[in-house]
Design a protein around this nucleic acid. Structure first.
Lengths: 151, 151
DNA sequence: GTGAATGCAAAACCTTTGCAACTGG
DNA sequence: CCAGTTGCAAAGGTTTTGCATTCAC
């Protein structure tokens, strides 16, 4: 279920240098943790979960692995607020929606044939290599459940 | 030039509670710093600049002031990567473009009658209160000057 | 075998907090 | 006057680093 390291999962994983990528137990464990839940755990949360399978793993190694996997294009780092970075195995272009009621993080797909950069008046000649979109608000669940969900 | 604290500068500053907003020398200094350069300084940078005009100001106070001004809707906090937050006095809806060559941060306006959320397939019933868009790439200046500008 | 990766602990960095002194309305 | 703000220093949380040991290729 997770045996697809060398398959670029979408067209974004072009310049990955797998020749320089040593697949250690720890990197595998971190990768597996991210794919097991598909929520958006922080490094600490990944550490806690990875420790269940591999008690000897260290937090520094989790950070190293997340960095390596991010470099390799196998994982995306999600930055919002001043909180800890979150990590996400969804390689398709997508945005993140943070519900301020239930504190959940949801992936939001790009509409078919839409372009994330489309609404923005970029100066002529700009080259956009990366776009990160973070939305905050109230998700449909919480909205249905009243304004102060999970109170 | 900076005498417009109580003028909402665009339609976003609706629920600001100015009744609870005491304009101290420090808050004024921080506000002025942000408007003087209009680059996107970090809290530390604001601190250094504010200290020139007011040597007694402390870093903690700068953080406090930035927080207060952000709450009041007079300033926007910009989060990218794991670096320190940057602050921006541009209240119009806009995105940020980080040039990875010159390290500059540019504001990018929303196209007329465009919607930042438009490209995204949000689930029915979502309420978006806030959108933060950060792009990374190469700005026209650096692109013209060759790939490794400011090297 | 060997260079790269790990684990540990300590450090670095950004940001917040507690509290006495001060100040703006 | 007095609640709210400041300044200082210390603490908190996240992430990085140095280095000896271990491991994947």
């Amino acid at each position: 279920m997770v045996e697809k390291f060398k398959e670029p999962q979408d067209s974004q994983t072009a310049e990955v240098d797998f020749g320089d990528f040593r697949m250690t137990k720890q990197r595998r464990a971190v990768f597996d943790v991210l794919h097991a839940e598909r929520d958006h755990p922080t490094a600490s949360e990944v550490y806690i979960r990875a420790k269940e399978q591999m008690p000897s793993i260290s937090l520094a190694t989790v950070y190293n692995c997340l960095e390596t996997l991010t470099q390799a294009g196998l994982v995306k780092q999600v930055n919002v607020d001043r909180e800890a970075s979150r990590y996400c195995p969804n390689l398709k272009p997508h945005a993140h929606f943070f519900c301020s009621h239930c504190q959940e993080v949801y992936d939001v797909d790009l509409r078919p044939s839409a372009d994330a950069v489309e609404p923005w008046a970029l100066p002529e000649g700009s080259i956009v290599e990366h776009v990160e979109v973070a939305m905050k608000g109230c998700c449909p669940n919480c909205r249905g459940a009243g304004t102060k969900a999970n109170a």
